[in-house]
Nucleic acid binder design. Structure first.
Lengths: 191, 191
DNA sequence: GTTTATTATGACTGACCAGTCAGTCATTTC
DNA sequence: GAAATGACTGACTGGTCAGTCATAATAAAC
């Protein structure tokens, strides 16, 4: 039997993913967690706190995933590919919730994001830093081109976004991962 | 003297960009447009209609831009680069409003997006189709690798997003456009 | 079993705000 | 000048919902 707090979080993830923060009510979340509305406030200070908790979880999971990848004995190229694969996996785990974790949206609900923004910046800085380190090492070993590692890191994060977006835009599309990987690793230009 | 409707739209763009739809009130928009709140309803049916109008504008502008690029007598490679450059320009024109136009967010406020989603899908399908046609032509002429054009099109859209995101994450970063272009056109892998 | 402590509940409250519409005012028409 | 018109106004209305807290239910202690 899942702990109440965990049920609340899971209910909230689903609902935030489906309806976003503003269209999800505390009553909705409570119903999904099979508790009364007032119970929510035994576990969370307020509605934004639930949102923040979920975001933090996701970001922590991303960093943990990066840590594991860092420790693998594989080439930097393989590490980058693994970052993308696992990144996609983590994001897909939250179904349609990915806008919650998108740094692009941090300015998009000023009040709500006031408390969340520092968290976002902190974790994203770490994520980018870690990826950039892998890229840097790959540049050093001659695997990668000499590009700005920070730029490449953000670029890589957006590859994950592309992979998540594609099935959304075109559900019939199959086997697109290879094409994404190909364009990413080898570029679009033919020689 | 700007027409009232235009003032309303401009005020709304600013505010939606700064606070998002839900934290922006009709009163805010009215104040920014220097009209009374009730006046808004002389020009727009309701609050979501303002939002929809803005989104439609942006999407139309994007398509118009694509049309112009299509007609240019330049290589497909150059067309793709131009798409990115102009795409960035269009998106930056709306400052922080870009989450408004991000297809990623279409599931994120279920009620609000109900009316907007078909619009989004329609325009985005056209945008992707147009870009994919350019990529396809580039593949035919031998400029580009043999990749799925629709995948490449979404990929290109996300390049624009990367370029917009970078200064947001790291305001000190300079001259990142070349690195993005390099990775995109030539890939990350060194040979 | 009774009493006490702890947890959960859901009706209530009040803040908020989208949309409404009676009233105002400037301009036009008769 | 009087009446009509249309654009604009902002107080009002009613719906929504986050957060509260007196009460109920359950668990623990005796």
């Amino acid at each position: 039997m899942l702990e109440v707090r965990e049920r609340i979080i899971r209910s909230a993830i689903k609902l935030f993913a489906r309806k976003g923060f503003f269209e999800t009510t505390v009553e909705d979340i409570a119903r999904g967690a099979r508790v009364a509305k007032g119970t929510i406030y035994l576990y969370f200070k307020d509605k934004p706190s639930i949102y923040t908790t979920i975001i933090e979880r996701h970001l922590q999971e991303s960093i943990q995933s990066l840590r594991e990848i860092e420790m693998q004995k594989i080439s930097h190229r393989e590490k980058v590919v693994e970052i993308i694969k696992r990144g996609i996996k983590i994001w897909l785990k939250f179904k349609n919730a990915h806008p919650m974790f998108s740094i692009e949206n941090i300015n998009f609900a000023k009040k709500l994001m006031r408390g969340i923004k520092p968290l976002f910046m902190k974790y994203h800085a770490e994520i980018i830093e870690r990826i950039a380190e892998i890229v840097k090492a790959g540049i050093r070993t001659g695997e990668f081109k000499n590009v700005n590692p920070a730029v490449a890191a953000v670029y890589i994060i957006n590859i994950i976004r592309t992979a998540i977006l594609l099935p959304q835009i075109n559900p019939d599309l199959k086997n697109y991962e290879q094409d994404i990987e190909k364009i990413f690793l080898e570029g679009l230009i033919r020689r």
